[in-house]
Design a protein around this nucleic acid. Structure first.
Length: 291
DNA sequence: AAAACTTGACCGTACGCGCC
DNA sequence: GGCGCGTACGGTCAAGTTTT
């Protein structure tokens, strides 16, 4: 959360003086959620003022409250209570993203561009958080900072950000729930022209790429061997088999190798392996419990 | 139960920057 | 230019969860 150090005032602003935030990543859609917001404003008025920042030309840029504005426009309301904050563009981006990320329903594409905008804004702000001794112990990278302020891990934030490299059509498929997050991340690594091929093939035959299929596509692309035929072949196959997992059970081994026939060093290796795996499991559990 | 997907963690590499 | 350091990010793994 960005702390508000500037003076803030609540005031009624005519909606004609309001401008949407430039390139804001959120989609204001007229759906059921919007209908209930309209209903709520109709019966109770606007409970939370929108947040805006003043522009040089006397107008105000909306930091948070695009959906409330849309609802007011639908109801024919001409003025709206607003908190006016003196914020730089970068500060406004961080505030806008934070305000919207806590919504109940947020599309993957919205999250992706929100995280990306916030990351770019934090980088541009160039804050040195590594200089004071008080902060020395909790030095954070930009992505870690975003992760700490959201309820997701650094990896997850990076995955969402990689979705911004998807072509709009594939991103729409992610929003529609046709492609899951991790397959989408794999597709984002493909060249845009290849992504378009994938989209066209999926769209034509109403197919949805699975994680394993997208991994195979990406590997082929890395080798420079992913063309239209290869994509068709991968997409037309049955969903891939579960990835290979090697599980060792001592009882199984004993069944095939009587005790005196199994070389001692192999037994030692296996025991060592199992021991390491147990330690790893315990460590993971401790990490989880600590959080 | 198998398959698909999610999630967190870790590692390696590339890059930019300041310093010598 | 070489070096050390911090940072970003891609790749991978393993375990957990959800879906079929």
């Amino acid at each position: 959360m960005t702390e508000v150090k500037e003076k803030t005032t609540v005031t009624e602003l005519p909606i004609t003086a309001l401008r949407p935030f430039e390139e804001h990543p959120y989609k204001v859609v007229d759906n059921e959620e919007m209908a209930s917001l309209v209903e709520s404003i109709y019966t109770q008025g606007i409970l939370t003022p929108i947040t805006v920042r003043p522009l040089d030309n006397g107008e105000y840029e909306i930091v948070s409250g695009h959906r409330r504005l849309f609802a007011c426009q639908k109801l024919g309301i001409t003025a709206i209570p607003a908190i006016v904050k003196e914020l730089s563009r970068e500060e406004a981006i961080v505030a806008m993203v934070d305000a919207n990320l806590h919504r109940d329903h947020i599309l993957p594409s919205e999250k992706a561009f929100a995280y990306k905008m916030k990351l770019d804004a934090i980088k541009r702000q160039g804050e040195r958080t590594d200089l004071t001794s008080a902060q020395l112990g909790q030095r954070l990278t930009s992505v870690e900072k975003i992760a700490a302020e959201s309820d997701e891990s650094k990896s997850q934030v990076q995955r969402y950000i990689s979705l911004t490299r998807l072509i709009p059509e594939l991103l729409q498929m992610v929003d529609d729930g046709k492609i899951a997050l991790t397959p989408a991340v794999e597709l984002s690594k493909l060249h845009h022209l290849t992504q378009r091929l994938v989209y066209e093939i999926c769209d034509m035959d109403d197919l949805t790429p699975s994680y394993s299929q997208t991994v195979r596509m990406r590997k082929l692309a890395d080798e420079g061997a992913l063309g239209e035929d290869a994509i068709r072949e991968i997409m037309s196959e049955e969903k891939a088999n579960q990835r290979e997992r090697i599980v060792i059970y001592m009882d199984d081994i004993k069944q095939y190798y009587p005790r005196n026939m199994l070389p001692k060093d192999i037994v030692a290796d296996i025991k060592n392996l199992l021991h390491k795996r147990r330690l790893e499991q315990m460590r993971r559990k401790e990490n989880r419990d600590a959080r």
